[in-house]
Each structure stands twice: as C-alpha cells, then as structure tokens.
C-alpha cells in the first residue's frame, strides 16, 4: 500500500468536484477509473499527481503527503501522462522521450550514459526504436501516444498515471496501447492507474476498477464486481446487458439502453 487518499476534497474555485474520497491504489496492479463525464475522475487523477491542488484530506505516497515531497523527487516515483498533450512540431521522438530524464538532470541537461540506456529501453519497450529520429508530427496517432508513454517510461517510475490514453485512437491502436501498459505491469511490475472511457477495455485490462459518480466512489473492486448491470445502472443510468467475453473471459457489456 504505497499510494492512497484520505477524505479528499477537490474543488475548482468554489465548485466542489470530489468530496470526501478515500481510496487505496493497489501496488503493482492496473487500476482503472471509470465514470460519466464530469464525475471527477480526471480531477482525482490530477490531484493524486499534484497537477492540481486539493482542498481537504490527503494524498499519501510512501507514507508522505505528496505536497510535502520535493516535486522532483516525486517525479522519480510517479509519472503522469496528461490527456492528449500537444507537442512542438519538429521535435524528434528521441528528443521527446529524452525529456523524461528531466527530474534526474541538472544544469544544461546533458544526457549521461545511464540516461541514454533508459531512453533506449523506453523506446524499445514501446516499439519506437526504429522511429527515434522521426519527427513526432510524422507519426500516426497510436505511435504518437506510444512516444508519450515512452517519455513517461523514461522517467523510470514505479507508478504511472495516464489520463484517457486511448482517446482519439482507432480500435486497433487502442488495444496496442493497452497491451503495452499490460506488458509493463506484468513484466516490470509497474503500478498503472488510468482513466478509461471504454468499459470493456476497463474490464479487460484492470485488476482493480474505481467507479465514480458525482465526485464520489460508487463501487470499487475487480472487473466482475464493478462491470455489473446494477453498478452500471447507478453510474451511467443505463440498462446494460453484461455477459462474458469469449476471448478473455472477462465481463463484457454487449449492449445497453438509456433508462428513460
């Protein structure tokens, strides 16, 4: 139990988005946060990674509140890939990924041998070694997202947060990105926490799902516990037909209707 929140309140100005939220992120597992638009899932992700401040409560990593930790030290433990970030065009894949070494550098940021090894490893893990001198803008959407994930990997952290890493990707590229994250979890024991919109992806890849609505947690647990017609009815106001994925044996939402 390295990372958890206690009675967390998050607000933009006066508008309270997340209220009194306590959750523990299981170590070395894939955690997925699901919920309708505006439920506060991205907000929770941002607060847990100090991208935005929180009003009350605590986010604890390794026994220390994250706002009391040196932000550079935190960046060596925890990486966050925001939702579809922009990139300056003309930047090569290698340059972009090399910025992941920022927390370890001082001065002009000359890359050490160790930096270069980790960058190469990150490029290799994301299948981008051959593309490393290509400008990021010449890549496809899936390759681009993999380049950003490689940047997070180059940060060499045990915990990686991703905010909707599959947005704007076609279904093949979505799977490609999620399988990459699954492999990282399986082979490297990385803790992955991500916001996903696709329930079936969440069911397929997550060990632990956090289902949110109106800034609070409705249900947490395994895919079987959370991707369930009663839970889905409460979160999304939908009448879903949930079965079993013949390929993965995980829950699968076949179809659904809105509750009128």
């Amino acid at each position: 139990m390295r990372l958890y929140t206690m009675n967390l309140d998050i607000a933009y100005d006066e508008k309270v988005i997340v209220k009194n939220l306590s959750v523990t992120i299981p170590d070395k597992k894939i955690t997925t946060i699901i919920g309708p638009n505006g439920c506060g899932k991205s907000t929770l992700l941002k607060a847990m990674t100090r991208l935005i401040p929180y009003k009350e409560g605590q986010v604890i990593l390794d026994g220390k509140e994250i706002h009391k930790e040196n932000t550079k030290e935190l960046a060596k433990k925890l990486a966050i890939l925001p939702q579809s970030p922009d990139h300056p065009s003309g930047l090569t894949v290698y340059e972009l990924v090399s910025y992941g070494r920022f927390p370890y550098q001082a001065g002009f940021g000359r890359l050490t041998k160790q930096d270069k090894e980790i960058i190469d490893w990150a490029l290799d893990a994301t299948g981008l070694l051959e593309l490393k001198y290509r400008p990021v803008d010449s890549l496809s959407g899936g390759q681009r997202q993999r380049a950003w994930i490689a940047l997070a990997l180059a940060q060499d952290t045990d915990i990686i947060f991703l905010d909707e890493p599959t947005t704007y990707l076609d279904i093949a590229h979505q799977l490609e990105v999620l399988e990459l994250l699954e492999r990282l979890n399986r082979e490297e024991d990385r803790t992955i926490v991500m916001v996903l919109h696709d329930l079936n992806h969440a069911a397929r890849f997550a060990h632990f799902i956090i289902a949110m609505k109106d800034g609070r947690i409705v249900k947490t647990g395994t895919s079987e516990e959370v991707i369930d017609r009663n839970v889905l009815r409460e979160i999304f106001q939908i009448e879903a037909i949930v079965g079993k994925d013949p390929l993965t044996k995980k829950p699968l939402c076949y179809t659904y209707n809105l509750i009128k």
Binding site: K46, T49, R50, L51, T71, K72, E73, L74, A75, K76, A79, I80, L81, P82, P85, D86, H87, P88, Y99, G100, F102, P103, Q105, G107, F108, G109, Q155
Partner: peptide, 17 residues
C-alpha cells in the same frame, strides 16, 4: 532547459517535477 519542458505543456512540466 526548463523553458523547453514548459513549452510541452504545463501539466507535463509539473509531472516531470
């Protein structure tokens, strides 16, 4: 160097420490 990181995006810069 800091400007380069900041020019990516504010959130990325914070995330990188």
């Amino acid at each position: 160097r800091e400007l380069t990181i900041l020019s990516l995006s504010e959130e990325v810069a914070i995330g990188l420490g």
